[in-house]
Amino acid sequence: MKKLAIRIAFIFIITVTSACGKSSDQLNTSQALQSNEEQPQGQEDTEDDDLEASPDTEEIKITSHNSQQESKPNNVETPPDHAALDIPTSDSLIHSPEGKNLSQVEWKPGAPDVTLPIRFGTTEAELVLGLDHPNGTKAVMIFPSTPVGWQLDLSGDTGVFDEYGELQEGYKIQATLHDFDQDGINELIVTAGDSIIDLSIWVYSFTTVGDLQKINPIKQELSITGQTYIVLDGDEIIAPYGSQGLFNFYKYVDKVFMQPVY
């Protein structure tokens, strides 16, 4: 009996020990499962944090992009669109084929200087028209990037100026931009006349140069005369002359004005 009691006690101890070990393993397994279950929760918290942070991140990216856009120079070569002068068609020296005024700036003797903003490709400029000093007519191309201004070449067979280089009494000078060859860089057209029988027309092109202070980038491409007004039609200038409703045509071909025969 004594041996039987000792054997029963030994079996009981082994059973209890085994049970305790199993509980410990179960506890460890439970902790591991709990740890694994908590990890996705942690990931969800991280995703939530990312979602909460993403608007700020997106805002920073957008702000940075806008800043780069603001600091990046405008390389678009299309010049700005300037509205035509609000003047009667009868006072305009530059017309469309439909008879609408195309002049964008006008100056008359006695009036303050006027300015026409221009963009030649990526180069900004301003045309200033007014009374020169001590006499003469001011038609100066100014480039804000340099302190130098270039006087336009107004030479040619013209009677719109007096012996001092000033506009004749009752005359005016107007200007506009027109892209004759559709290359994205406008040419400049300047006209002066009395809207009746006397008209002078000059056309200028722009060429990119290395130093605007030393090299004049503006070249006179055409200097002609006509009457009343001119018409700009695509790559052509149409200038009336005489009293019989006749017209001269000048076509811009390969950067050169030619007078075609019709």
Rank of each mutant, 00 (worst) to 15 (best):
L4D: 15
A5C: 06
I8S: 13
F10N: 06
I11N: 06
I11D: 13
I14T: 15
I14Q: 15
S18Y: 12
C20G: 15
G21E: 07
Q34Y: 14
Q39I: 14
Q39Y: 11
P40G: 05
Q43C: 12
D45Y: 11
D48H: 08
D48I: 00
D48N: 12
D50A: 15
P55A: 14
E58V: 12
I60V: 04
I60C: 07
I60M: 07
T63R: 05
N66D: 07
S67G: 05
S67F: 01
T78C: 05
T78A: 12
P80W: 05
H82K: 13
A84D: 15
A84Q: 11
I87H: 03
H95F: 14
H95I: 14
S96E: 08
P97R: 04
G99E: 00
E106F: 09
E106L: 09
P112N: 06
P112Y: 05
D113R: 06
V114K: 12
P117D: 15
R119Y: 14
F120C: 14
T122S: 09
V128I: 14
D132L: 09
H133R: 05
H133P: 03
N135F: 02
A139M: 02
V140S: 13
F143V: 10
F143A: 10
F143M: 07
G149A: 08
W150C: 13
V160K: 03
E163M: 12
G165F: 09
E169G: 11
E169H: 13
K172D: 11
Q174W: 09
A175Y: 05
A175K: 04
L177A: 05
H178T: 04
D179H: 10
Q182R: 07
D183N: 13
N186Q: 05
L188S: 04
T191N: 08
A192Q: 03
S195M: 15
I196F: 04
I197Q: 08
L199I: 02
L199H: 00
I201H: 02
W202Y: 02
V209K: 06
G210N: 06
I215W: 09
N216F: 10
Q220M: 03
T228H: 00
I230Q: 02
G234P: 01
I238N: 01
A239D: 00
A239K: 01
P240W: 00
P240F: 00
Q244S: 05
G245K: 04
F249P: 01
Y252H: 07
K255V: 06
